[in-house]
Amino acid sequence: MTDTILKIQGLKVAYGGIKAVKGIDLEISRGELVTLIGANGAGKTTTLKAITGTLPSCKIEGTITYKGQPLKDVHSFQLVERKLAMVPEGRGVFTRMTIQENLMMGAYTRNDKAGIADDVDKWFTVFPRLKERAGQLAGTLSGGEQQMLAMARALMSHPELLLLDEPSMGLSPIMVEKIFEVIRKVSSEGITILLVEQNAKLALEAAHRGYVMDSGALIMSGNAADMLHDPRVKAAYLGE
């Protein structure tokens, strides 16, 4: 049994004549928090959607292996049963369901009622705002509250690998701080995380390792702490 939980080899994604991802290799070991940083349009979200099988019609080449098994022809809804969950860009909460109902939807693959109840209590403790509004429709929440809910809902499935797509996008500084506090907490509990994030500084501070993506290609990778001090990363992504 390898400790590699996710392995991407030679991934290429093309929409017609547009090459969004150009033959990337990426690997994540169990328990790691790995971040994928880069500018808008670099191909980061396309990479996550290729992993989860949620891309629109396009040409995909290469292999994606999760827990030693290829993900080719695996439907996206089956991934939750395999303990892979994603918090998409834009949150994707069920707007016409309550907070409580959203959390229960996150646990739909489970049947341990006591464990589910314990997890609801756990995430209500982590996110007190959600507890205060448990009966409120998710569509009436602020962007930050919806992000909290999307993360808690994904974690209700007890994922072994959690994909996070731009969790800080559009949030206030105080809310961004809270979201990253939770990301670090989840990582400390041993859940493997692949974090796609535009805020390179916060992402690299939280991560063990990092990859830099530019125009569909991976141009750099390494220890996250080292990358924080790399002059190229500083100049391009940290505004220094």
Rank of each mutant, 00 (worst) to 15 (best):
R82A: 09
K67S: 10
G90F: 09
K12A: 14
Q100D: 11
G16S: 09
G17A: 12
G90R: 03
I28D: 00
L79A: 08
K44G: 12
F77E: 07
K72F: 11
G43D: 08
K59M: 07
G23C: 01
M105Y: 04
D25S: 09
L48V: 13
T47H: 04
I24M: 03
P56Y: 11
D73K: 02
R110A: 08
T4M: 06
I18A: 03
A20V: 05
G17R: 10
G68V: 12
P56Q: 13
G43N: 06
K22A: 08
G16M: 08
A39F: 01
L84T: 08
Q78I: 03
F77I: 02
G10D: 15
K19V: 01
G68T: 14
S29T: 01
A85Y: 01
L84M: 14
D112K: 04
V80K: 06
M104G: 09
L71H: 03
G62N: 09
N40T: 03
K59G: 00
T95N: 12
Q9P: 02
G106F: 05
R110G: 02
L55D: 06
Q78H: 14
K83T: 08
N102Y: 05
L103W: 02
E27S: 12
L71F: 01
S76K: 01
I18H: 13
G31P: 07
M1P: 11
R91N: 13
Y108M: 13
L71K: 03
K19L: 00
L6M: 07
S76Q: 01
S76M: 00
I60Q: 10
Q69T: 15
E32H: 04
E89H: 02
F77P: 00
A50T: 07
M104H: 12
E27Q: 14
M104K: 14
F94W: 11
E32N: 09
S57Q: 15
T109P: 02
G53D: 01
K72W: 11
T63Y: 07
K7N: 13
T95F: 04
D25N: 14
G62A: 07
V74E: 11
P88T: 05
G68H: 10
V74R: 09
L55G: 03
I60V: 15
T95W: 10
D25H: 09
M86C: 03
N111H: 15
G92C: 04
G31T: 08
P70C: 08
M97W: 02
Y66I: 09
G68L: 07
Q9A: 10
T4D: 10
T45Y: 03
K7E: 15
T95K: 14
T63V: 13
G31M: 08
G17F: 00
R96S: 14
R91I: 10
R82N: 04
I37C: 06
G43E: 06
S76G: 00
E61R: 10
Y15T: 03
D73E: 13
D73T: 00
Q9M: 00
R96V: 03
M97T: 00
L84G: 09
K67Y: 05
I60H: 02
L11H: 01
D73L: 01
L36Y: 04
S57Y: 13
R96Q: 15
L36G: 12
K22F: 00
P70Y: 07
A39V: 12
T54C: 10
T4A: 06
G38F: 03
N111P: 00
L36P: 05
F94G: 11
I64F: 07
T35E: 02
L79F: 06
A85C: 07
T98D: 10
